[in-house]
């Protein structure tokens, strides 16, 4: 239950600036995802919020109180780490109870809280095990359980799913979403480099690049109105097609962006046409890679039943309302 504000927050390691002035307002109970390529500073930003990393300058406010210098344990936060960071020598129960024991909570109180959290995550039958006796998914639940027991106002996740295999990742993603739903007043901040995770989990997404916030918004906003060429390319799969040069000039812009799903095949009245150089079958959909004279072929999504031989020539037309036009600086041009 905390509103978190970052005001012109900066971080430098020696002469290297990692976070170059971030302003962000995270609402109570919001699920905020930090996303960006590796090295963009998203993890550093999370660690600054947690208190594990010093803030070089700027202000960090929790419910309007400046907490820059406050120790992590006093911020009312809990954190789930990428490597789970379970204490290897403690049982699941002790792992979850450790924080409360240090805070000198009563034995009964600890037991109640730990068991409640364990039940919620369906790990109550594992309480006597050691971390090494658990599977990856179970460890992840214990890590989340340990965080829940702390009864935090803010939940921090640092790439919690990247050590899990693909199937488990999807399942755990659902559970984290459910957790956020169940603890509806807890603010969650989640760091990932995976834009699919970001899109599926977030109330709002903060896209970071080189220590600067590129755009903050709901998943829909980022998808429909990317604020820069970078965001446009980062959000959405497959990556948005970018056309430059003559093709872009025809639309009075420097770069023209159009997503694969916003291109339709039209052999009678094509805007662009070219040869099919590659073909990816995903079952429900097919992606056609069409060489239209750009550096990269453009990707066109078609129905999964459509079969086209390589080398055949096709014409495509963009949906006019879904065109993204960018100027020289990579900024969007709006009509």
């Amino acid at each position: 239950m905390a509103r978190i504000q970052l005001q012109n927050v900066r971080k430098s390691f020696g002469a290297v600036d990692v976070i170059k002035g971030v302003d962000l307002d995270i609402q109570k109970g919001e699920f905020m995802v930090f996303v960006g390529p590796s090295g963009c500073g998203k993890s550093t930003l999370l660690r600054m919020i947690s208190g594990l990393e010093d803030i070089t300058s700027g202000d960090l406010l929790f419910d309007s109180v400046r907490v820059n210098a406050l120790a992590p344990s006093k911020r009312g936060i809990a954190m789930v780490f990428q490597s789970y960071a379970l204490y290897p020598h403690m049982t699941v129960y002790d792992n979850m109870a450790f924080g409360m024991k240090l805070a000198k909570a009563g034995k009964d109180d600890i037991r109640t809280r730990v068991e409640k959290a364990a039940k919620m995550l369906q790990i109550d039958h594992l309480l006597d095990r050691l971390p090494k006796q658990l599977s990856g998914g179970q460890r992840q639940r214990v890590a989340i359980g340990r965080a829940i027991v702390r009864d935090p106002q803010v939940f921090l996740f640092d790439e919690p799913l990247s050590n899990l295999d693909a199937a488990l990742r999807v399942q755990t993603r659902l559970e984290i979403a459910k957790l956020h739903h169940d603890m509806n007043n807890v603010t969650m901040i989640y760091v990932t480099h995976d834009q699919v995770e970001a899109m599926t989990l977030a109330d709002r997404i903060c896209v970071l690049r080189d220590g600067i916030v590129e755009q903050v918004g709901t998943p829909e906003e980022l998808y429909a109105q990317p604020n820069s060429l970078f965001v446009a390319g980062f959000i959405g799969s497959p990556k948005m097609n970018f056309l430059t040069g003559k093709q872009a000039e025809a639309f009075q812009c420097h770069t023209l962006g159009i997503r694969a799903e916003h291109l339709v095949m039209d052999n009678t009245n094509p805007v662009w046409s070219g040869e099919v150089v590659h073909f990816e079958n995903l079952g429900s959909d097919n992606y056609l890679f069409v060489a239209i004279g750009e550096e990269m072929p453009i990707i066109v999504r078609v129905d999964g039943k459509v079969r086209l031989p390589l080398g055949s020539t096709v014409g495509v037309r963009p949906q006019a309302e879904n065109l993204h036009r960018f100027d020289v600086k990579g900024k969007p041009m709006r009509q």
């Binding site: 208190g51 594990l52 010093d54 803030i55 070089t56 300058s57 210098a69 120790a71």
Partner: peptide, 10 residues
């Protein structure tokens, strides 16, 4: 730069 409590304690 203000020294954070955590660093100071450590």
């Amino acid at each position: 730069m203000q020294q954070a409590e955590l660093q100071a304690q450590r």
